[in-house]
């Protein structure tokens, strides 16, 4: 859920939107925000499944330290979604384990 109005920060206005796709679903994101913010705003909280046990993970530290929120972005796995800003037409996928679409080492 977006915080459109805030008692201290005021109204969110003049937002420029971009369209991104998460597992095929179209999502309206705000230019300049990280992927994780757009996904949380859209109600998506599971970003990946772990390697060993396949358990779900999502945002943990939110500032690029913990790497729990990594996803496949435009075919590249292990992208930290909390510090990677959205771009028009971005294709984002829930990452299964080490990721499918690219090599582990770019």
């Amino acid at each position: 859920m977006r915080i459109l109005n805030h008692p201290i920060l005021g109204e969110l206005k003049d937002m420029e939107t971009v369209t991104i796709y998460c597992d095929g679903m179209e999502i309206l994101a705000i230019r300049g925000e990280p992927i994780a913010a757009a996904l949380l705003a859209a109600g998506i909280r599971t970003f990946r499944k772990t390697v060993k046990t396949g358990e779900p993970r999502g945002v943990y530290c939110g500032i690029g330290q913990c790497n729990d929120c990594i996803m496949e972005v435009n075919g590249v796995p292990n992208v930290r979604t909390c510090v990677t800003l959205v771009e028009e037409g971005m294709i984002i996928k829930t990452q299964e384990g080490l990721g499918k679409s690219g090599g582990l080492h770019d």
Partner: peptide, 8 residues
């Protein structure tokens, strides 16, 4: 030894 290098 994972991606976060022990920060957590």
């Amino acid at each position: 030894m994972g991606l976060c290098q022990g920060k957590t």
